[in-house]
């Protein structure tokens, strides 16, 4: 099994698409920080107002309060990047027909898929950590340039809260990424893995919002889905991230009865288990014909 995991890791590390995806994610994170810093600085300097939200955004760019904001951006960009990496690396095995070669070498198919998932999970965690480090460095530069550098806030509580927030981010992502594995396995292509999972990620939010506004028992259904449970975990990070996850200044704020965070985490993990279980079941009995 170790050789299988090492092989899957090698395949991920050597594939240029994964490097490019990580580079784009990090580039977008830096770009967001720089643009927001410049924009909020301009609005502030010009005295154009902007209210409490402007102050919150600007504060979130500085090192002391940046972790929740960084996680919010990582949730958005990291989810997209993760879906691309997971969908592409799972689906390409079918389009290249390498799934036929690999299952010829490792006859127990579940071991091949398990090794791939472990390697992908490691890659996603490493990618998110790289993204987080890039954001923290960017924030440190902004903080330094703005002359507010003071690391006195870094204590055990800060580190514990940050680690817990990062852990919640992983739980938020795991259900969507597991869905991407299932879609790529059934659809036998990267396109299926990426497009279907991205579609669900975006459409579910819209449908959930409409169902919530409908009220009654219909409004309770989204609490068993992915979107509201992911938002419930987002709120735990606090700061700007938490407020935006709760609806921010939108009409949804206060309308959504967010699920309990523990229940939300369990629900997301159950969904992940269902998606992965279905992927294993399907892969085990799947006919691996040649795809021309």
């Amino acid at each position: 099994m170790r050789a299988l995991i090492a092989t899957e890791w090698l395949k991920i590390v050597r594939r240029r698409l994964n490097h490019v995806t990580l580079g784009i994610m990090c580039g977008l994170l830096v770009l967001m920080y720089v643009l927001l810093w410049l924009a909020t600085g301009f609005v502030e300097d010009a005295g154009l107002g902007g209210g409490e939200m402007l102050g919150d955004i600007r504060s979130a760019l500085f090192l002391e309060e940046t972790v929740p904001f960084a996680l919010m951006l990582l949730y958005a960009f990291g989810l997209l990047a993760g879906l691309v990496v997971v969908g592409a690396n799972t689906g390409a095995e079918y389009t290249w027909n390498t799934v036929r070669t690999m299952t010829g070498v490792e006859a127990r198919r579940w071991r091949f898929l398990a090794a791939k998932l472990l390697a992908l999970a490691t890659a996603i965690i490493v990618g998110l950590l790289v993204g987080l480090i890039v954001v923290l460095v960017t924030s440190a530069v902004i903080t330094l340039v703005d002359g507010q550098m003071d690391l006195a806030f870094v204590d055990a509580d800060y580190l514990e809260h940050s680690a817990a927030s990062f852990g919640r981010l992983l739980i938020q992502l795991v259900a969507y990424l597991s869905l991407s594995v299932l879609c790529a396995t059934i659809g036998r292509s990267p396109t299926a893995g990426i497009a279907l999972a991205v579609g669900v990620a975006f459409l579910e939010g819209i449908v959930s919002g409409m169902m919530t506004l409908a009220g009654g028992w219909v409004a309770e259904i989204p609490q068993y889905g992915l979107d509201q449970n992911a938002d419930s975990l987002s709120m735990q990070a606090g700061g700007l991230f938490g407020r935006l996850a709760a609806g921010g200044d939108s009409p949804f704020a206060g309308v959504i009865d967010q699920p309990d965070p523990i229940r939300a985490g369990v629900t997301l993990l159950i969904w992940a288990a269902v998606f992965l279980g279905a992927a294993f079941w399907w892969f085990q009995r799947q006919d691996l014909e040649y795809q021309g």
Binding site: A6, N97, R100, V105, Y290
Partner: peptide, 26 residues
């Protein structure tokens, strides 16, 4: 061992790396 309907190996790895990968697994 077989070769059915064309060779199926990883396009971004070299020929040697592809074989080394399979050799390690075996």
């Amino acid at each position: 061992g077989g070769l059915v309907e064309g060779a199926a190996l990883y396009p971004y790895l070299s020929g040697r790396e592809n074989l080394a990968l399979l050799a390690r697994l075996r």
